[in-house]
Design a protein around this nucleic acid. Structure first.
Lengths: 328, 328
DNA sequence: TTGAAAGCGCTAACAT
DNA sequence: ATGTTAGCGCTTTCAA
């Protein structure tokens, strides 16, 4: 250690001084501190952890496909606040929904020995994590469940939420309802779409898939999908959008229409109340807290079977669903 | 290395096999690979980097006070996409605007030897980073400039944007204009407020500070501040909000009013066009790209003086500022 | 094609 | 109160 030399002490004494361990003469400590400052010295955390055996990291990794989405950022924020109490730090990485990226970033986090990993994955399978998981590093999956791997998860009641949305529209007399969905391979989307459809079918609407458009993954695509639905004859009198981005796209189209169809979106919107959009809402920050809870219990030694927490959703009726089927 | 033992080879051979270096017998490689799989082995990135001397990390750290804010998440996303081309990975940490947290997280990232650091700091000074910086690890400050330290930065033309907002309102005939600002210690806020005020003063409005409320850091506080302004007699006929959160708070109040004052907000809003809110906008993703550019040039060896990039802002007039001063 | 030894920066254990 | 030795898991260098 360069610092030790400059201060004229042994390497170990320098270490003691810098780490504030006892048994260092006042004057020595000062000399070391000064040398360190002059050199711009910073302890090498990697070497320390390497020496200490690897489970001293205070880093929790979180991996997500689209952490820019307010849903995930609120989730992360709830999680972060919770783990911070325990002296743990959250680092997040964004995979941009790119599978290769997700692989590489998972490796990077794991190789750097994060203490635990929170995964909001878009991958179709997580078997590549199985070995790691058996080795003891805790994973908690959020929003989307682990596949090919038994691990803790915090999920939404997607089926329940979609069911409420469908029931609400049926009650208002709608029978021709369009659905605009996200990537069809995503489990969240599948659950929302199929549950919504099942409720329609149970009400005697057998051909609900006629008005289903999926894979509208961004706002622009969603806009086009909604336009497509509206141009049909007869056009749907109501539309269900399966997430916040898609709802945004739908709003961009609908707000220009003199007599727009009814609208229900999954996920609350920042301006949902102002815009009067009926939504199926839930509490992302609470999701973060639940995630933290599972994580911390694992860190505290719980080694039982994987636990899944399913969080409730709630329908908030607002103006956008009050438009009766006749108006369109 | 446990794997080596299990495969019955030397530790070095195992290393070679796993890293795909040449000169390993086919059969040996397979044996090693199998042993690794069975053991759930994962290379220890810390040990590798330690051995390699420390500048092999592919991690870029980004530190922000409120990465959940769409402004920062868009910025991060622009940055991420850019560095990914270079095989670099972005990890972000959120300090929740907490000074102690910011300190600790900076240390954590630096101790883990990230390759470079992007800082959206809320600290009043960054002198503690000076030594580090001299040591060669590149910093790029975004949104808020470095203080007590000479480093690259990507900033917004806050003064210009605020000036445009003020000029726009003056042109429309407003003379009693409320301002709701963020934390007064933040340089961004100071620039926006003082520039806005200077433009008013130049137009003969000397008492503009009468209608200034600062430190409205979250949506709720902003709501209360706007209500406070509106209850005054005479109330302002227009309001300028210095960031997206505050604008959101203002909208919550104004949208319920029969004859709301005019409104201009700094930062674009997700639903800005739908809601018809006049804003001073800019391009956060581009900010991320510019940040990446400065960063990568440093990584490529540029060692010249610090460079500041100031990005333009643009006024988008929409319905919310078309409300004339007489209406309120 | 494989292996042995040394050392990256650090700290625990044991001297002194 | 301070120093020495060993070793964390890896890779580089040199040898076999």
């Amino acid at each position: 250690m360069e610092v030790a030399a400059r201060a004229g002490v042994s390497i170990k004494t320098a270490s003691r001084a810098l780490n504030g361990e006892g048994y260092v003469a006042h004057e020595t400590r000062q000399r070391v501190q000064q040398a360190a400052d002059e050199l711009g010295y910073r302890a090498n955390g990697m070497a320390r952890e390497l020496r200490l055996g690897g489970n001293t990291s205070t880093l929790i990794g979180m991996l997500g496909g689209d952490l820019g989405n307010p849903f995930y950022s609120k989730l992360a924020s709830g999680l972060e606040r919770e783990v911070r109490f325990r002296g743990l730090q959250l680092v997040t990485v964004n995979t941009d929904e790119d599978t290769r990226s997700e692989q590489r970033l998972t490796d990077a986090l794991l190789e750097r020995r994060v203490r635990a990993l929170v995964v909001a994955s878009t991958l179709p399978s997580h078997e590549h994590l199985a070995a790691e998981h058996r080795h003891g590093i805790p994973f908690v999956f959020v929003d989307r469940p682990p596949v090919g791997l038994s691990a803790d998860a915090v999920l939404l009641d997607n089926r329940g939420g979609a069911h409420q949305a469908a029931a609400h529209l049926l009650e208002l007399g709608h029978t021709r309802i369009g659905i605009v969905g996200d990537l069809s391979r995503l489990s969240t989307n599948q659950e929302r779409v199929t549950s919504f459809g099942a409720t329609l079918r149970a009400a005697g609407i057998a051909d609900w898939r006629e008005h289903l458009i999926e894979d509208a993954h961004d706002v622009d695509t969603a806009q086009r999908a909604v336009l497509d639905l509206l141009r049909r004859d007869p056009a749907p009198t109501a539309i269900f959008t399966t997430n916040n981005r898609i709802t945004t796209g739908a709003l961009r189209v609908l707000h220009r229409l003199p007599a727009p169809p009814a609208l229900i979106g999954f996920d609350e919107l920042d301006m949902g109340d102002i815009l009067g959009v009926t939504v199926v809402t839930h509490d992302p920050e609470n999701m973060g807290r639940q995630t933290a809870r599972l994580l911390l219990e694992r860190l505290d030694g719980y080694a039982g079977t994987a636990r899944w927490v399913i969080l409730p959703t709630r329908l908030i009726p607002r103006a956008s669903s009050r438009r009766p089927p006749g108006t369109g």
